[in-house]
Design a binder for these strands. Structure first.
Lengths: 142, 142
DNA sequence: CGTAATGTTACCAGAATAGTAATCTTTCTC
DNA sequence: GAGAAAGATTACTATTCTGGTAACATTACG
């Protein structure tokens, strides 16, 4: 079973949480941590990374907090995943074909490239605008 | 970057190698190991697992070796992957929703289920018959 | 029986993962 | 300006996973 890491999972919860609030709403990381069951000492790094990548906008200091850097509809699940997992690549030979001496003419490598592209396309098609809408209006996605 | 493990990669090389031979051909694991650059002390476990799963048929003893248990066209890449990675599940909450207390109504979980299904469908559509044909006749797949 | 082959198990070193903790920096409020 | 609130950064740890090695057991042919 090869899966995304906990970081990525937590990150998507954070973005989803913000996507469900009023546009531009700002809350503290600690608040999200408690509501979304994320270890509070952990969320720091996650938020920091998401802001470095341009998904979140943070404000330091008293009264500060975090908000989406863009409308939720413009944030894709793929972006969040790649912020923590790196560029999508289902096999090492996809990201760096040089590591496999057989790769040049290897049809399995081609298959992995195709699978990676399919997955990437799917994740690009999922925005947090969509996901937030599902919560507000569950029957919209049968 | 979340990728398949080396086991899975090696396994696909083994199956591909056999798929390129005459149907029913039997060769030794050590032979494949040397030709396909797989650590020879490693290939035992891989072959063993592939035969337990019904992809390979092995014959012990002197003069023995390994062969495909079925025609290559009936062996999918998904089968080989799942033999080593377990059931496809891009997030833990896909395989076991119980681990996430939020999962019941979590739209991100739904997204992961969808992504997993897409990937599974793609990998099911890739057979080693196809892959072997690409080697013999490279221009068949532009 | 000896040899050639797979099957199985145990083991190990290094890396990754999940999580904790401490400290630094910024900025608001009083 | 002091203090507190908040994010930023870094270091650390314990556990698990991974890739790989090695040894031994089992099977079967001749």
């Amino acid at each position: 079973m090869f899966t995304i890491g906990r970081n990525t999972d937590y990150a998507s919860r954070i973005v989803l949480h913000l996507a469900c609030l009023e546009p531009g709403a700002r809350v503290t990381a600690a608040d999200i941590a408690s509501r979304r069951l994320i270890p509070s000492a952990f969320i720091r790094r996650i938020v920091s990374r998401l802001s470095a990548v341009g998904v979140l906008a943070t404000v330091r200091g008293s009264g500060g907090g975090i908000a989406l850097a863009r409308p939720a509809a413009q944030i894709t699940l793929r972006e969040v995943v790649e912020a923590f997992e790196g560029p999508l690549s289902l096999n090492v030979c996809v990201a760096s074909p040089a590591v496999c001496p057989l790769a040049v003419t290897c049809p399995v490598q081609q298959a992995w490239v195709g699978a990676t592209q399919h997955l990437a396309a799917f994740l690009t098609g999922v925005t947090f605008g969509d996901l937030a809408r599902e919560i507000r209006d569950p029957q919209s996605v049968p």
